[in-house]
Design a protein around this nucleic acid. Structure first.
Lengths: 357, 357
DNA sequence: TTGTAAGCGTTATCAC
DNA sequence: GTGATAACGCTTACAA
């Protein structure tokens, strides 16, 4: 086993100084043709590669981005990661992943671990528990330390940083409009509790669409799911709740759900109740994941373009990082003038499939 | 903005030496009560945390694990990551993720990037292109450098390292047995090309089950999908191919598919052809993902326990890393005696749902 | 009880 | 053209 070779070893072997080796390898013309050749040949032979850690320490930057998300087994989030990874890699960065598992404490622990020099900046989406607690001190702390953050999807106005979001509100309006225009007389909504910002916005969009059409929303037609008990693992409960909802509102002929799980489950329940999709009831979901694509009938959804979000987030972060060292850390000046933070809105798009007419 | 504070700064503020600060903070009793108190208080006040990079350089270990997988937008792989992250975190490690995107070149580039000091060891699953090329020099190279690798799922005998796999063969046998015992007279197979090791093993399992029952497999009943053209994005093609297959083999009353996409798509196609699942045709898939759970009817599958695989892989790797430094790098001795590598087999489990009787 | 110095692997600055 | 030295932030013999 030949361990990785270092500059020092090359220097010793070739009987020159470490600095000569370093310069020769970086192609400095301070060094003579001869020695440069010799050193480069030797380095290639032994497959020399500079040690990243040493470089990080020296340059005070790691060229790696920290991603912190609530959950990885989730089509949307993994799509975002793919986007981030793609541009990060292209721009010479690595990606390190932390999972908060929707927990406030784990979010903090992970942030602290990564913030101690391991990364140059964060791309993150806030955990549900944090949103519930509304305690954002850890974000402020890292930002104050000079570490930039880009938030995506689950963001919050209280934290000043770059953000990439989807127009949840407009997306929901578009979806509900579509149902109404498709002649649905009674469009219902299945949503989450309000503390999840995106759920709230989508709910507001639902209401707005009604307003736009001069219609009044019927509170009975809105089902709020409390997923504090991890719905994914208690499908029967979810199904029961939705079945109950549909049965007590037999007039429902259109349904907008704030995520694809609710939508697909609703379709399943509807079918069991003898309803035909889309003939008796049309359904639109939010988030374009695998379920939507492969459900029978396939589900019309509002696509969030997760990969694009990831790409934009990564670009925002890296732009800021590189601006920082171009301007020699002059980002925040002493008189504390506020920097402009960017909020990018990714447009949603309705993907029409078989669950609508 | 107050940048992160360093030992040096603390030392200066308190007018002591850096080493005193270091010792005081680590609770060494070389230092007097008084100064220790003072220093610790000050450190807490300024929220001092040692710089990871400096520690990594000093200790020659990063306490981070590199994960290299073909694709992240994939339920199975993200499940594995979750498992890895869980134990890594518990044991004080971070996780850095690289995606090969099924490409040989990207796999190599990523490995090289990470192997230059950024991580202590790899957990990886081989890309399809690499499997096809059968070129494993980059794995050998990293191992020779003294960096341990743990492979999972898509592994290969040619590389000597720890491995975590699923009993693909037995899992397939069990699945097909179940179909046969459920009275299917003509069990078909939908599989991938043979170069994907797991696909091959599952195919062999299918054949073995026939053999066990003294039956002969009919080559016409085996459909090999060439997914070189990224089937996921060309669903129509996949559907057409499967439709063709089912139509030309009307006697099929049982179907085993080597992944859930094929299985779910087959169910969809079958329904379109007027076949009832499970009455006319029973279906079992491999890999227990979201699709299986939420399909209508829900799909009976062979579960791979991805999270468990991840956990085991992480434990194997970390065990090896920590054994290494306990034994003072004596892992490989000069006379080149081979270490024992562990191959863990995770048992599959059939999850019965609605697609079988 | 405290401080000095070396070293982890690099690069940049300055001397020779 | 080449080399010595310092520095990045930290730990740890070894001196004082």
């Amino acid at each position: 086993m030949k361990k990785k070779i270092t500059l020092k070893q090359i220097a010793k072997e070739l009987d020159v100084s470490v600095s000569t080796v370093s310069k020769a390898l970086s192609g400095s013309k301070e060094i003579s043709e001869d020695t440069t050749q010799k050193i480069q040949a030797f380095a290639k032979l032994y497959n020399y590669k500079p040690n990243n850690i040493a470089l990080s320490l020296k340059n005070r930057k790691t060229k790696t981005i920290g991603i912190l998300i609530p959950e990885i087994v989730h089509h949307f989030f993994s799509t975002v990661i793919r986007g981030i990874e793609r541009v990060a890699n292209r721009r010479g960065y690595n990606v390190i992943v932390g999972l908060s598992n929707e927990s406030f404490t784990k979010e903090i622990i992970n942030m602290e671990m990564l913030a101690n020099g391991s990364i140059d900046g964060f791309i993150l989406s806030i955990s549900k528990e944090t949103l519930l607690k509304q305690d954002y001190h850890h974000f402020h702390a890292t930002i104050n330390q000079g570490m930039p953050i880009v938030m995506f999807d689950r963001v919050v106005d209280e934290v000043e940083c770059d953000k990439v979001i989807v127009d949840d509100f407009i997306g929901a309006v578009k979806a509900v409009n579509k149902l109404i225009e498709n002649n649905c007389k009674n469009v219902a909504l299945i949503t989450t509790m309000d503390y999840v910002s995106v759920g709230k916005l989508r709910t507001q969009g639902y209401l707005k669409a009604f307003e736009d059409h001069g219609m009044e929303a019927n509170p009975n037609m809105i089902l709020k799911i409390d997923d504090s008990l991890n719905v994914e693992n208690h499908l029967e409960l979810l199904e029961a709740e939705i079945a109950q909802f549909l049965k007590s509102n037999p007039s429902i002929d259109g349904l907008f759900a704030v995520n694809e799980l609710y939508a697909v489950t609703a379709m399943k329940v509807a079918k069991k109740l003898g309803l035909k999709v889309p003939d008796d009831i049309q359904v639109i979901g939010f988030t374009d994941g695998v379920l939507s694509k492969h459900a029978t009938p396939s589900l019309t959804t509002v696509s969030q373009h997760g990969q694009k979000m990831g790409e934009q987030a990564a670009n925002l972060l890296i732009d800021r990082l590189e601006a920082e060292d171009a301007e020699g850390q002059q980002y925040f000046t002493n008189n504390d003038e506020k920097r402009d933070f960017i909020k990018l809105v990714i447009e949603t798009e309705i993907i029409e499939r078989e669950s609508t007419k």
